[in-house]
Amino acid sequence: TFEVERIVRKKIVHGNTSYLVKWKNYSSKDNTWETEDDIRTKYGDLVDDFEK
């Protein structure tokens, strides 16, 4: 199971928000862009903290 360590960046393309996710126990080269809906479902607190 993958676990988010932190959110690195945010991008908005054509009105759709995605977050660059750093995965726990993986290197930064393994970071992936994930949709806001996918990340918010399980890691809403991390998204809220990133947006502060």
Rank of each mutant, 00 (worst) to 15 (best):
R40I: 09
E36L: 08
Y19W: 03
S28I: 08
T17A: 10
F2H: 14
W33P: 00
E5D: 07
K10E: 00
V4W: 02
T32D: 00
T1Y: 13
Y19A: 00
D48S: 09
D48R: 12
N31D: 08
E36V: 06
H14R: 11
K22I: 05
L20P: 00
S18P: 02
L46D: 03
E34A: 07
Y19L: 01
S18L: 15
K24I: 05
K11D: 04
K24H: 06
T32Q: 02
T32K: 03
Y43I: 04
K24L: 09
D37H: 13
S27H: 09
K52P: 03
V21Q: 00
F50G: 01
N31R: 05
D30S: 14
N16I: 15
H14S: 11
L46I: 10
V4D: 01
I12S: 08
I12K: 07
E3L: 07
E3V: 11
S18E: 10
E5P: 04
L20C: 11
I7T: 02
K11E: 06
E51Y: 05
T35E: 10
F2C: 15
V47K: 02
S27K: 09
F50K: 03
E5G: 03
V13L: 10
F2V: 10
I12R: 07
G44T: 08
I7G: 00
I12V: 13
L20D: 00
T41K: 14
V13A: 08
Y19P: 00
Y43S: 05
W23A: 00
S28T: 09
G15L: 04
V4E: 02
K10Q: 04
T17W: 06
K42G: 06
V13G: 04
K52V: 08
N16A: 12
S27F: 06
K11Y: 06
N31Y: 15
V13M: 10
D37R: 11
V8D: 02
S28W: 15
V47I: 13
N31E: 07
L46C: 04
V13D: 08
R6G: 07
W23C: 02
N25M: 07
K42Y: 12
G15F: 04
E36W: 07
D30V: 09
D45R: 11
W23D: 00
N25D: 09
T32V: 02
S18T: 11
S18C: 15
D45T: 11
F2S: 11
T1I: 13
E3H: 06
T1K: 14
K29Q: 12
K10A: 05
E3N: 05
S18G: 03
V21S: 01
T32W: 01
Y26T: 14
E34R: 06
V8G: 00
L46R: 03
I39C: 08
K11I: 09
V13N: 08
V8Y: 03
L20Y: 08
T32I: 02
F50A: 02
G15Y: 04
G44W: 12
H14N: 15
K24F: 07
S27W: 06
T35C: 09
S27R: 06
Y43T: 03
E51Q: 04
N16P: 00
R9W: 09
D30A: 14
S28F: 11
T35L: 12
I39Q: 00
I39M: 15
D45K: 13
D38H: 12
D45V: 11
I7Q: 00
I7M: 01
V8C: 12
V13P: 01
T32A: 02
D49H: 10
D49C: 09
G15S: 04
I7W: 01
L20Q: 05
K10Y: 05
D49N: 10
L46F: 07
K29C: 13
T35F: 09
Y26D: 07
N16T: 14
V21I: 13
H14M: 12
T35K: 12
K52Q: 11
S18Y: 15
E34W: 11
H14F: 11
G15E: 03
N31F: 13
D37C: 10
K52W: 07
T41Y: 11
K29D: 12
Y19G: 01
T1A: 12
T17D: 00
V4S: 01
V47A: 07
S28N: 12
R6C: 15
T17M: 05
I39W: 00
T41D: 12
S28Q: 10
W33G: 00
F2R: 15
D45N: 13
N31S: 10
V13H: 10
Y19C: 02
S28E: 14
Y19T: 01
N16Y: 11
D38T: 12
E5A: 04
R6A: 13
W23R: 02
R9V: 06
R40E: 03
E36A: 11
K42Q: 11
F2D: 11
I7V: 06
R9E: 10
I12M: 08
W33V: 01
Y26K: 15
L46Y: 05
D48T: 08
N16E: 14
E51M: 05
T35Q: 09
N25L: 06
E34V: 15
E36P: 02
N16W: 09
S27V: 07
S28R: 06
W23V: 00
K22Q: 10
L46V: 07
K22F: 05
E36R: 05
H14A: 13
R40D: 03
K24G: 04
R9P: 00
T1R: 14
D30L: 14
F50P: 02
Y26H: 15
V21D: 00
V13W: 09
K42M: 13
I39F: 07
S28A: 11
E36M: 07
K52Y: 07
R9G: 14
V21L: 03
R6H: 08
F2L: 14
W33Y: 02
I7P: 00
K22L: 04
